[in-house]
Design a protein around this nucleic acid. Structure first.
Length: 1000
DNA sequence: ACCAGTAGT
């Protein structure tokens, strides 16, 4: 083997062993191997050079052996060897000493080794500092060559000891590393000048640039000096007027002092780098040192564990993953299929695809288990094909003759897409034998035998058909997600199964929860089916990260620079704001790096993002670039993006919590659970083995994260659910067999509220009014409002208002650059009084008048998608009204008083009175609350004494959202059991006189 | 003088 190919081979091997390649190192090592008399010597040189610390010994040894073997049978010619000989001794010592010092302070090299020690050897993780800092373009070690030539004359390599070789190894390595750093710095500064020429710089930026220049200056200075020392020493008498030489001369004479100074500077510089990863006030640091981000702003990860994969052949998408999934499955099926003849029909191909699903071999076993047990817990891991196959299996053996087979999904899209897929597999038209039922869109027929639906839909169905007599089997899919509806369904079904012995119930869940489900269903049997997932390596940070947004950006860049361009990156953040911030920083930083890195396409994704922009995440990543998706937990379960290989998990999410005492909601950034973290990691292993970088420590994963997310039922307002349960005849709610009990507070509040609204009588039984209210898929207070509005003849207004209210926020779009225009448009709806409630009504009304125009929406800063949902809700409510024999078209033509009276009748529980210092106090709990600044009432000069609010939200303060003024008399009129004339009058008086009295 | 994670009937 020629020397050249030996070097190439060595370089390749280095990549496997070290995680990075370095040509000069390879050349050097070949020389070392040439001279070495034993394998062990190579290993030693290698180790001492600082390349290998922490690497797997076995691998290293194998590599060394191999190298040794390859070198020795064919002794190489001495001419070539000469090239790579040792530098002058003095120089070596200098560099070695200096660099040892450097290593002690440098986070980069030391921590990298530290990390390696704990990483798997075959892993070429992002924590490989060298690779990260050495994009191929940036390592021209010219200096080294010069050194080599200078050395050539002095010594022949025959005289070199192994000891010297080690020094040399270390020197080469450190030198090239230093060179790369300097190079990057130079380019960064050059970028700065070209890109931001003429742009006014902030102080921090200025400081940063000055610092960078200073460092460069120092390096140059030293290099000049080194050159002199290395090559030849200037005679003392040599006195040139040329300033450069003179300066160098001066430096020489004052070397000691200078060097000391220089070292201190350098130490400071490096200390700053070291601290960067861990220091608490990271943000400020970041501002100062943006330019070094790729190699200094580094986060150290430790690999610990792998999320195991199954069946590496390919991934079968999670059943919860919609339409895309099904199309994907189809595509996927083709290459896997045994070479299909052209005659083979599309349908035959699909059938062949079915047989390859992991669930297929378990068919008979599973059906036997279903036959023997009424309730079966199914652990079907992601990609097993359970969602599409199990209902078909049940149908094939005849369960469909006894009744429909129902399968619930937590999400609408899932229900639709899975149904479509199954219809295709069964070769029937969607909506005939196979159908789906979701709100606003039921696609079934009397022929339907397999019906997919949302869990909420089945819950509503139980209301009309309490024993589910039309069904022979029910499959509750994705039960581990523990949605509110799933939880309620499970309890109800547990009961139904008891007296309907012919009903089969299959509860499908992820591994972790299977035991819990089994226990809940009186130790039901568990049936396991493996899935198809690729393994995902899990990395943790060595130290906690204080600023996870910044840390995630740094990690993205680390991955982007150090990992092959073979997979996209998915980052989990908590919300829109963070996603935008991270996006901006990323754009900035990648721009600073210019063309030295491949293109990075940044795609934000969150539910409120306009659909066109959402579509961007599904676009295929162009060659030579990488996509980074910044997502909320929407990407955790709700949508699946192909091509993701790297997942960055900040470990946080926003979670709603409900304070039953005040009926107040808050959205808080909370640490995720272990289960959620694993779910997120799994997102990286869908199409290929992946890597997940967790921006928290392994310790905190074990000790600080809850094993499971607190189920929704424990965090939500139960008003709706309690009304539903009451109308199903569940009398003793406190003894209802919840899988996880909601806080009693929250149940009691719901009962209290329903009693106050008149939906329950004093014995806790459902009243006639309550029964009517339960018909509406709305919060009890809204249902009450709708029912009352019949008498007030303002159905039309209230239906629009209710539809808009139940959307929550997000109707009004407020871009930062046009905030003023948006506000003006919004205030337009407020003209004519009636606060936010009437504004919402007028908004909907005007839109309807414009013939549901999208241009109208743009002009008025209204989100089309959201208001369209309001239209859907309104139309559904209309339909329900007709069923309860209420005419939904009755209107008062936008008059304010009647609809506001109806709102008062429903929301008297949510009334606040103006206090002395301009703050409001809730009537019930006397809690001080404020009008939310987004309200049209926020800027009113004369705040009304009495207001009604739609909801209470705690953010920075206790805010009332959607506020409207009311007359206290209405309270007495519509909630006489709650307010008496005297209350209203007295409180008024109290307020007036109380103020005066308290001053005296 | 705020700032909305996701899903569902």
């Amino acid at each position: 083997m020629g020397k050249k190919s030996l070097e190439t081979w060595c370089s390749d091997q280095l990549h496997d062993v070290l995680g990075f390649s370095d040509k000069s190192l390879a050349t050097f090592l070949v020389d070392v191997a040439d001279k070495a008399s034993s394998v062990q010597e190579i290993v030693k040189v290698f180790e001492e050079g600082g390349h290998l610390q922490g690497k797997n010994d076995r691998l290293v040894e194998e590599f060394a052996k191999d190298l040794f073997r390859r070198c020795h049978p064919s002794s190489s010619d001495p001419e070539k060897k000469k090239k790579r000989s040792k530098a002058p001794k003095r120089k070596t010592e200098d560099v070695v000493e200096e660099t040892r010092e450097k290593e002690r302070v440098s986070a980069v090299s030391d921590d990298t080794k530290e990390t390696r020690k704990r990483s798997r050897p075959e892993d070429s993780g992002v924590n490989d500092g060298e690779q990260k800092r050495s994009p191929e373009a940036v390592s021209p070690p010219e200096k080294k060559d010069a050194t080599g030539e200078a050395a050539e004359e002095e010594e022949t390599e025959e005289n070199m000891t192994v000891e010297q070789l080690r020094e040399k190894s270390r020197q080469v390595y450190l030198k090239s590393r230093e060179q790369r750093e300097v190079d990057l710095l130079q380019k960064s500064l050059a970028d700065e000048e070209t890109l931001f020429k003429g742009v006014k710089l902030t102080k921090a930026e200025e400081k940063r640039i000055t610092l960078g220049k200073k460092i460069l200056g120092m390096v140059e200075e030293r290099e000049g000096r080194d050159a002199i020392q290395d090559g030849y020493r200037l005679p003392d008498s040599y006195d040139d007027k040329e300033s450069k030489a003179k300066q160098d001369q001066d430096k020489l004479s004052s070397r000691y002092v200078e060097e000391k100074h220089e070292k201190t500077e350098e130490q400071l510089w490096q200390e700053a780098q070291t601290n960067k990863a861990t220091i608490v006030k990271k943000k400020h640091k970041k501002d100062e040192q943006d330019y070094e981000l790729v190699f200094d702003d580094k986060i150290d990860f430790v690999m610990q564990g792998t999320r195991k994969g199954h069946d590496r052949r390919g991934d079968r998408a999670k059943s919860a993953s919609r339409r895309r999934t099904s199309t994907k499955e189809k595509e996927e099926a083709k290459p896997e299929a045994p070479q299909s003849t052209p005659q083979e029909t599309e349908h035959q191909k699909i059938l062949a695809g079915r047989k390859r699903l992991p669930v297929y071999p378990y068919r008979e076993e599973l059906l036997a288990a279903v036959k023997d047990h009424r309730v079966l817990i199914l652990v079907g891991e992601t990609g097993s094909g359970k969602t599409t196959q199990i209902p078909q299996f049940l149908h094939e053996v005849g369960y469909s003759k006894l009744g429909k087979i129902g399968c619930t999904q937590p999400r609408r899209v899932a229900a639709m897409s899975v149904a479509a897929r199954v219809a295709q597999e069964m070769n029937v038209t969607l909506g005939h034998e196979v159908g789906y039922a979701i709100r606003f869109e039921t696609c079934t027929s009397p022929k339907t035998i397999i019906q997919y639906m949302t869990d909420g839909m089945l819950l509503r169905e139980i209301l009309t058909e309490p024993d589910l007599s039309g069904y022979s089997c029910i499959v509750i899919d994705e039960a581990h997600e523990r949605t509110l509806s799933t939880d309620i369904l499970l309890t109800l079904l547990k009961d139904i199964v008891r007296y309907r012995s012919d009903l089969k119930l299959i509860v499908s869940s992820a591994t972790l929860d299977a035991e819990k489900f089994s226990t809940f269903f009186d130790n039901a049997s568990i049936f396991m089916i493996p899935g198809r997932m690729f393994p995902v390596d899990i990395y943790y940070t060595k130290a906690p990260e204080s600023d996870y947004v910044d840390a995630s950006v740094v990690t993205v860049l680390q991955i982007h620079v150090s990992q092959p361009l073979d997979g996209d990156v998915l980052v989990f953040l908590t919300g829109q704001e963070e996603i935008e911030a991270a996006g901006e920083i990323l754009t900035m930083r990648t721009r600073n790096l210019g063309s030295r890195i491949p293109e990075l396409i940044i795609c934000p994704i969150y539910a409120n993002l306009p659909s066109e922009q959402q579509a961007k995440i599904f676009e295929k990543t162009p060659k030579g670039s990488r996509k980074v998706v910044l997502a909320t937990n929407i990407a955790e379960t709700s949508l699946t993006i192909d091509g993701i290989k790297y997942v960055i998990d900040t470990g946080f999410q926003k979670q709603k919590s409900f304070n039953a005492k005040y009926g107040m909601e808050s959205l808080i950034v909370t640490p995720i659970s272990q289960a959620a973290a694993n779910q997120r990691a799994g997102r990286g292993g869908r199409t290929q083995p992946g890597k997940c970088f967790r921006l928290f420590t392994a310790w905190s994963f074990q000790n600080e994260l809850e094993p499971n997310t607190i189920p929704e039922i424990a965090r939500t307002n139960m008003g709706n659910v309690v009304l539903l349960l009451k109308s199903l005849g569940v009398n003793n709610l406190l003894h209802f067999d919840f899988m996880d009990r909601p806080p009693s507070d929250s149940l009691i509040r719901a009962l209290e509220q329903l009693y106050a609204l008149g939906a329950l009588n004093d014995r806790g039984d459902l009243t006639k009014l309550g029964r009517r209210m339960a018909e509406f898929p709305l919060d009890p207070m809204l249902s009450k409002t709708v029912i009352v509005s019949e008498k007030l003849k303002c159905m039309s207004e209230i239906l629009s208002m209710v539809a808009m209210l139940s959307l929550g926020a997000g109707v009004f779009y407020r871009p930062k650059d046009k905030a003023l225009l948006a506000d003006t448009a919004r205030m337009n709806f407020a003209r004519g009084g009636g606060g936010d409630h009437m504004s919402l009504y007028r908004c909907y009304h005007d839109w309807a008048q414009s013939n549901y125009s999208s241009i109208w929406c743009m002009e008025n800063f209204v989100q089309l998608r959201t208001i369209r949902k309001a239209r859907d809700i309104r139309e559904q409510l209309e339909g329900l009204c007709e069923r309860v024999e209420i005419d939904p078209a009755v209107s008062v033509d936008g008059e304010v008083e009647p609809p506001m009276k109806a709102i008062t009748a429903g929301f008297f529980y949510n009334v606040a009175r103006l206090g002395r210092s301009g703050e409001y106090q809730t009537v019930k709990q006397h809690k001080t609350v404020y009008i939310h600044p987004s309200s049209v009432m926020a800027k009113d000069e004369k705040p009304p004494t009495w207001v009604v609010y739609f909801e209470l939200a705690f953010t920075t303060k206790e805010f009332m959202r959607q506020v409207a003024p009311i007359e206290p008399e209405w309270l007495v009129e519509f909630a006489p059991h709650y307010f008496q004339e005297i209350d209203v009058a007295e409180t008024n008086k109290k307020k007036k006189y109380g103020k005066a009295r308290s001053k005296r």
